[in-house]
């Protein structure tokens, strides 16, 4: 269904259009995150480049979603749960756009590291990627299926990622202290950026869980735990 230049006929039509665009944005953001982590693991600069060049499409989708949200607000003045549904699409679109930005950060590190011998094999970072991907998928599933229990479950997974993020930072700090070379510091600095980027993807996923819960119940997620 093409929505450009198509006047929204009613609120439901508008919301369906938004959900469709959000789903498209979710697929692209998840793909960007998957590809960026893959490009880091394989040190594939070409794959990393495709993540960076694909970011514009995601940004454009976010802008399109905002346009539709403004149109719905102007035409239909939604209230209560209808209003929350529209506003939360816009907020979740922002989370996804930032996930894609983090994918770009990871891809840029992959480009930098291509052809280099890593100061440390990637062990914890792939683990973090796995959890963050599961969180992002679960958070968006909770949104599309309006499943508060799933949102709560995913939200609680964030601690695992935070713990691994701290461990990566500690390990790299130790390596830098032991081998105080320019190359070591340079790589460590970038791997910390990667770890932090994955941690942020997990944070955006928890935000989606919170936004989904508020959309469904009108209550903050933390009050339900």
């Amino acid at each position: 269904m093409e929505t450009d230049n198509l006047r929204l006929s009613n609120y439901e039509h508008g919301l369906d259009t938004l959900k469709m665009k959000l789903n498209e944005m979710f697929s692209l953001s998840l793909e960007a995150f998957e590809k960026s982590s893959k490009s880091l693991e394989t040190l594939d600069a070409k794959m990393a480049e495709s993540v960076i060049s694909g970011d514009d499409e995601i940004d454009n989708l976010k802008r399109k979603i905002e346009e539709i949200v403004y149109e719905i607000l102007l035409r239909f003045h939604p209230l209560a749960s209808d209003l929350r549904r529209v506003i939360m699409v816009m907020k979740i679109a922002s989370e996804l756009e930032r996930v894609a930005d983090q994918a770009v950060n990871i891809a840029q590190v992959a480009q930098f590291l291509e052809g280099k011998t890593l100061i440390k094999p990637l062990v914890d970072i792939p683990k973090m990627v796995q959890i963050a991907k599961e969180m992002l998928r679960g958070a968006m599933q909770s949104y599309f299926e309006e499943d508060v229990e799933l949102a709560k479950k995913i939200w609680l997974m964030d601690d695992e990622v935070d713990t691994l993020d701290r461990k990566v930072a500690d390990d790299l700090e130790e390596i830098v202290v032991k081998r105080c070379s320019k190359e070591t510091i340079s790589q460590a600095e970038r791997l910390i950026i990667v770890s932090r980027a994955i941690e942020r993807v997990a944070d955006h996923s928890t935000n989606v869980c919170e936004e989904t819960t508020y959309m469904i119940l009108g209550k903050e997620l933390y009050t339900l735990l």
Binding site: Y11, E12, P78, L79, A80, S81, L83, R84
Partner: peptide, 18 residues
């Protein structure tokens, strides 16, 4: 009340207008 009413009946009234 207009954003997150406590009662389902209120929500139904506010959203039923469309």
């Amino acid at each position: 009340l207009l954003n997150a009413p406590d009662e389902k009946l209120t929500d139904d009234y506010l959203t039923g207008m469309y």
